[in-house]
Nucleic acid binder design. Structure first.
Lengths: 337, 337
DNA sequence: GACTGGCACTCGCTACATTCGAGTGCCAAT
DNA sequence: ATTGGCACTCGAATGTAGCGAGTGCCAGTC
């Protein structure tokens, strides 16, 4: 059954009111607060239909209506208008992100900014190693049998590992190893390195190089370790019993699992925001929450994801706008370095 | 007024029971569960004295007794016996920490381990830059006018910053700059570097060196940036209304403030644990919690702090034992690299 | 046929009264 | 000094009643 225009207006009004007040909204209140041009009785009839169709529901018989996940979904897809950021918000973003000294700093600042602006839990993924390229590889002799291998990526990430050499090496040799490494690998995408590393080992015939290769492949590529920053968990406590049905604990637990958080960014793209509402989340513990995520990176490429998480009852238009704006700034910042 | 031996026994029993049950403990229950050898009436008299002295209190007139901060303090100082770790716990610690590939990994693993073992919020500080020495400084040319300065410390921390050169430089020059930097600074304590950097600038008369010096001093020394890892915030939700009087929010907020967390480690030493109970905390938002912290580092030096935070009603002997044990393992791990 | 005013009904919430029992303080007896 | 006994306190749990926001439905109107 098709929903006519007015029923959609009613749904929109319910979502907006509920998000604003956090209380089930009744037919009379709706008519008062929105110029719908019809009586409360009519609204009640519309509500009955919306409820039949599963867009809203009653917490208990004599209460007002509350949007369901399906209702929010319709709202997000068809009913909400894009809410442009206020100039104040734009300025806040710029002021906050300018002056970040390194990648660590950029990520930290953005995640806090995001949490602050949306008043929700924010997650920012560090630029994914899998999607980065090698800028430079550095070898630092720690002793004659140990090297520190440092990899610097084009996105500013720095990873280091200790490499145990099979036999002692004078420091001069290290210069040559470094030269070979960089000649072969600098500029290459991390995902493309395994065959290159293989070639290196075969060419050099040097057992030190084999040791290096093992470390490179094992820890930097195969087990490409993602990192995350999290902020604003305190915002979860604002709701607690209210919305999340006292289920704060499992949510906090889920937020500590990197694997779970990374899943949030699985299908992100740069430019458009991905919204997962309530049950649409794969992770059971997050079924009472919604996630708004997007990708970021220089231009329209994706080097990482970021987003926020909050109760399904959230200001979707505002949140989406903020998430996208922050992602754009972060992407721009990255391309500068 | 002096508390005789039995009154102390009563206090100890109250603390232990309250920690175990989370409920105010009455005189009868006490006599049943502990072989005190006296009647409940006697215990009641003792309780009255303990209450006068401020060691315990009644939540309301007809309820049992609950230890006060002062009561916990006395318990920690004089009444609790050290609780040795179970072999299972020792094994857990070893298994968990062995196989950490780099500093990041060590810190992450320890903080999660600590949260898991104590079932509380755990905080681990990265080795403090202020307390580390320079192992090596690396310069990576990014373009002819930009260098990436990478500092590696003896504790395994790696910090990097972009340096803008006043004038373009050929790559060969960089080698010389690097040599000079390391010759002067490698091995020096970070706190001792400022005069050395000054000397470098004067000796070299090179404006590139001046640019480097500015970055070195400004971002690596003056603003010596500390880092932290946090885990187990979900454990806070286990209590919530129960103990923390619904004050979860401010605590979560405090936990997101690095400055506040760092204060927890202000006076730590390696080897002994520092316990701050309730009101003894300087930060107002943490007055309902207790913090058990200690320092870690190779031998008996302190390069960083770690600890846990939980409700004042916590298992102090167990927590103290765990915190110290983890700190020792982390310290040992660090001296290996 | 769509909308509306009116009305009976539902049911969660609040307030108030009552009961129950764990725990206390005190006292006289040992 | 310790103890058994006892009156007392007060929070928690349970029960009852009234209120009111909100609903569903129906008959009437445009």
């Amino acid at each position: 059954m098709a929903l006519d225009e007015r029923k959609l207006d009613v749904l929109r009004a319910i979502v907006e009111d509920y998000v604003a007040t956090h209380e089930p909204v009744g037919s009379k209140a709706l008519v008062n607060r929105h110029a719908l041009g019809v009586s409360s009785a009519t609204v009640r009839n519309d509500m009955a239909v919306l409820e039949d169709e599963g867009y809203i529901r009653q917490p208990h018989t004599s209460a007002g209506r509350v949007p369901t996940d399906k209702g929010y979904r319709l709202f997000v897809d068809r009913l909400s208008k894009v809410k442009p950021l206020s100039p104040a918000e734009r300025r806040a973003i710029e002021r906050f992100l300018v002056g970040a000294v390194d990648l660590e700093d950029v990520v930290h600042r953005s995640v806090r900014l995001l949490a602050q602006l949306t008043r929700q839990v924010a997650v920012v993924q560090y630029p994914s190693l899998a999607r980065s390229s090698v800028r430079h590889l550095e070898l630092v002799p720690v002793s004659t049998t140990r090297l520190l291998l440092v990899m610097i990526t084009d996105t500013g990430r720095v990873e280091q590992r200790i490499v145990e050499l099979p036999a002692p090496r004078p420091h001069e040799d290290v210069t040559e190893l470094r030269r070979q490494l960089n000649a072969k690998l600098a500029g290459a995408k991390l995902v493309d390195t395994p065959p290159l590393v293989q070639e290196l080992v075969e060419q050099s015939q040097d057992n030190a190089m084999s040791a290096l290769a093992v470390v490179l492949l094992e820890t930097l590529v195969e087990r490409h370790e993602e990192r995350l920053a999290l902020a604003g968990t305190a915002n979860l406590a604002r709701f607690n019993a209210l919305d999340l049905a006292g289920s704060l604990r499992p949510i906090l637990e889920a937020l500590e699992e990197e694997v779970i958080l990374l899943k949030l960014f699985d299908e992100v793209q740069t430019g458009s925001a991905l919204v997962r509402i309530g049950d649409e989340n794969e992770v059971a513990d997050l079924r009472t929450t919604s996630v708004v995520s997007t990708g970021y990176g220089p231009g329209s490429t994706v080097v990482g994801g970021l987003g926020v998480l909050g109760p399904t009852r959230m200001d979707y238009p505002g949140t989406i706008a903020t998430v996208r704006a922050v992602a754009r700034y972060v992407g721009d910042l990255l391309s500068e370095r």
